[in-house]
């Protein structure tokens, strides 16, 4: 694992996230070094996506602070790329693959400016990188799940960010697409960028990530794969629901008191 001594890529300081009043992610304190491939792993409903969305400012924090590249999100937003879950959008939307990739350049272009030849060639380059150059003009609904996921990745690449957040990019994706995606992510790391990714498959975690965080409503452990994915940590993450946090959360939501 490469440890950047200069500055951390991503820091969570005592972050708590609540839906309504009910906390779903408790007191996460986590530092991710720059330039690495970092996995967020945990069972269903553990709050993995929520942690990612908290970092991106997509869900409000009930407490704590997030810093990216040593600064608050607002100051570095242009340097942050996001690949949402594939199911989060309507793939019947009338746009082509290139249209979607070009969206990655929109924020940088600002108001009133249209994507020009420079943006188009960048989009073509990004599509080539994820192996989709031959479907550039196709309607996005006609792609396979793996191809759709790679379109999302290409859009994030077109953003030319320094920190990438990916929400379960391997869910429902064929083996060829998975390999392609991981190869691109490894390239990003080699270029000195930070890649943070929610992942659900424990078996493949060791092959790909430099470091991981195990999450189940709270941070169980974080660090290099070999140190974190121990039987004891996995048992603490997956062994059973945390009835205590559940119960307290419900009491907080209802404004009552636990038994």
């Amino acid at each position: 694992m490469t440890m950047s001594t200069t500055s951390a890529g991503l820091e969570f300081h005592d972050v708590t996230v609540a839906y309504g009043r009910r906390p779903v992610l408790w007191n996460v304190d986590l530092t991710v070094p720059g330039a690495c491939l970092f996995g967020i792993i945990g069972p269903n409903g553990a709050g993995k996506s929520t942690l990612l969305k908290a970092a991106l400012g997509l869900v409000p924090l009930a407490g704590g602070e997030v810093r990216i590249l040593g600064a608050p999100l607002e100051q570095v937003r242009a340097r942050v790329g996001y690949v949402p879950q594939r199911e989060s959008v309507d793939w019947d939307f009338p746009v082509t693959v290139t249209d979607v990739v070009l969206m990655g350049t929109y924020a940088r272009l600002g108001w009133l400016r249209r994507p020009g030849p420079r943006e188009r060639s960048l989009a073509a380059e990004c599509l080539d990188r994820v192996g989709l150059a031959d479907v550039a003009d196709r309607q996005i609904g006609r792609l396979s799940g793996g191809q759709q996921q790679r379109v999302f990745l290409a859009r994030a690449l077109a953003q030319q960010a320094d920190v990438y957040f990916l929400d379960e990019p391997m869910a429902g994706v064929d083996a060829r697409s998975q390999e392609r995606i991981f190869r691109v992510l490894a390239e990003l790391r080699a270029e000195g960028r930070l890649v943070v990714m929610v992942h659900h498959d424990l078996r493949s975690a060791g092959d790909w990530f430099d470091a991981v965080a195990l999450i189940d409503m709270r941070l169980v452990a974080a660090g290099p794969v070999a140190e974190v994915l121990t039987p004891e940590n996995l048992r603490r993450t997956y062994a059973g629901r945390l009835d205590l946090l559940d119960e307290i959360g419900r009491a907080v939501a209802e404004g009552g008191r636990t038994p």
Binding site: G57, V80, D90, F93, M103
Partner: peptide
């Protein structure tokens, strides 16, 4: 015309548009 890019990105993928700072 003025908000074309923003309208389309928001319509297709509001979460990503927000993350991109739109």
């Amino acid at each position: 015309v003025v908000c074309w890019k923003e309208l389309v990105f928001t319509a297709f993928d509001p979460a990503a548009a927000r993350a991109a700072g739109l």
